[in-house]
Design a protein around this nucleic acid. Structure first.
Lengths: 340, 340
DNA sequence: ATGAAAGCGCTAACAT
DNA sequence: ATGTTAGCGCTTTCAT
């Protein structure tokens, strides 16, 4: 704001158009003389000229902004995703506006609209809740929306998530291989694709050892620590015969750990635990959890690419709108064999 | 972008100014009739009108943007600060652009300039390195810069940080109270105020029990896990008589934990450890660390307030440009008594 | 090789 | 009570 293009032009003794072109590297395209270009550039940095991104955005109808909306920026998973997106965006000259929806749809909607008014060119959102109408609406209105992590079944939007079913199957297999047959599930938000796919995977793994899933062994209503704690507490009380728990998120698992401690069950001796997704310093925990961890970097990277591509790219190819990133099994020592 | 104010005005059969005023609540100030206002509003949402924030920014010379630059968004501490700032900013109608400097001054400078060009109205930065010239320069150029966490001695900028000296004194006292006299220090980045103040606090606590600080017991060159690991490794090898370690950050402490394990020293039995700042799920770690933890929420909140105030507020009051947020001692069990 | 001028969408004097 | 108009700072036809 310190100085405008016009001032630069005046100082260099040229018109604003020449100044603009010189500074934007359109010099040769407009056959502007070398000398002039130099003169303009000199004037520009004498004045400490910083082109107004705002004015440019208005003129070009391109803000160079990407909106990222996550449920909780303090959660390592979302912080990491945001970071990756920020780095990827930056590499393409974009900036990222982050917004924290505090796990509430109401906020999510408000923030989305706010950012829409700021004319972000694309959204990456890790949605809360199990409704996607508002997201589809925004996308339909012209700002591409890519969903990351928490996606929805049958939703036309671009989506990046993990191989939940396969991952969950592997997780449960870790348990069944050690003889566990009575496994409690601490689920996340029902109705979301990650949750429901993990449920499928779990059922598949159980089927392999000839048992069918008992829905009374599934508890929980969100990916939060509170949900994990409450449901583990309940499950452990109602079904003391459970030998293992499968937590659908790190916070769920942490809640379970606390509930287990309170119930006097030590992990892994009296209770095995496996979780979906990892957390920093997991190996330094009292109970290093065996887990099926998501490739957060890759998810963020891919989401950023899709978002940026949707902006610059031509037609939206509906082919493969969902990307399932590979998960990785990490065996630590939260699982013990069932004693017969 | 779908529709402009002009279209709304046309549809409502009024001029753009009336439309603008009606929509912005300046109706009564301009004595616009109730009926007109209603007509305009109706037209607006029939058209799904979203005022262009870009155009408004240009006109008002106010972008409503705050730039947040942190060394590593995946680090829980910075993620948390960013979150708090985002929430506080949002409450005032501002949005936050986050940028990750990857612990490198070079990137920090580049990002800062980029955001400056975007005309963010204020910065909150957790700086990397021990140079503040570029930050002062930006502030001098008109965009208020408030430093959070990593501040610098004698730097005219607004700063929010913790009571490092007092906190460090308390941390060391936790150790000396248990009889520790040979304490290794895993420091962060020398030259930064947090680091140097913590060193002072440490020395003070030692002085209280009649010993003076031995600088050969201080190692480390950054707040990273790598620095903690390497320096702990070295210290433990060179001075096997050390009975305790004081890590200046969570990553430093985690590095120390790994180094200790490799050196065959178990914490707290063969080595006590205290750290500055906390981390999520600290109580669920194998060794729940005693710590002096920072009030991240408060730091973020205060930083956001200062930044927002600097924008809206009148003259920059130079009085008290540094805010030292209280720390809190959390005793867990990483400290044992020295056996005599 | 350079300039004049239109206009992106909005707000706020300044008229009526 | 409502309309006209001049910009905000920039890019880009369209002239010359």
């Amino acid at each position: 704001m310190v100085s405008t293009l016009r001032q630069v032009a005046e100082r260099a003794g040229v018109s604003v158009s020449v100044a603009s072109r010189s500074l934007n590297g359109h010099a040769k395209a407009y056959r502007i003389s070398e000398a002039t270009v130099l003169r303009v550039k000199a004037a520009a940095d004498q004045l400490g000229f910083r082109p107004s991104h705002t004015a440019r955005s208005l003129r070009l109808k391109k803000t160079g902004l990407v909106g990222v909306v996550v449920p909780d920026l303090a959660n390592a998973f979302f912080a990491s995703i945001s970071r990756t997106i920020a780095l990827a965006a930056e590499a393409e000259g974009y900036s990222v506006i982050v917004a924290d929806s505090r796990e509430q749809t109401e906020h999510e909607v408000r923030l989305l609209h706010q950012l829409e008014a700021r004319q972000v060119e694309a959204f990456v959102v890790c949605p809360v809740g199990s409704e996607d109408a508002h997201l589809r609406q925004i996308d339909g209105r012209g700002t591409p929306v890519v969903l990351a992590d928490r996606t929805f079944p049958d939703c036309g939007l671009l989506q990046v998530t993990s191989q939940h079913r396969r991952g969950a199957r592997q997780a449960t297999e870790l348990l069944t291989a050690k003889g566990h047959r009575l496994i409690g599930v601490l689920q996340g938000l029902p109705g979301t694709l990650p949750n429901d796919q993990r449920l499928c995977g779990h059922a598949e793994a159980l089927a392999k050892v000839g048992i069918s899933m008992d829905h009374s062994l599934v508890a929980g209503d969100n990916f939060t620590e509170a949900s994990g704690y409450v449901s583990a507490k309940r499950l452990l009380a109602e079904r003391p015969d459970l030998t293992a728990l499968f937590a659908f998120s790190t916070p769920n698992a942490m809640g379970a750990l606390r509930a287990a401690a309170e119930a006097g069950r030590s992990v892994p001796e009296d209770l095995s635990l496996v979780t979906f997704d990892d957390c920093p310093y997991a190996d330094l925990m009292r109970v290093p959890l065996s887990t099926v961890c998501q490739d957060v970097e890759r998810i963020g990277q891919l989401a950023a690419e899709l978002a940026l591509r949707a902006v610059t790219g031509s037609a939206r190819k509906k082919t493969q709108c969902r990307h399932d990133v590979e998960t990785r099994v990490i065996v630590r020592d939260s699982i013990s064999s069932v004693r017969n």
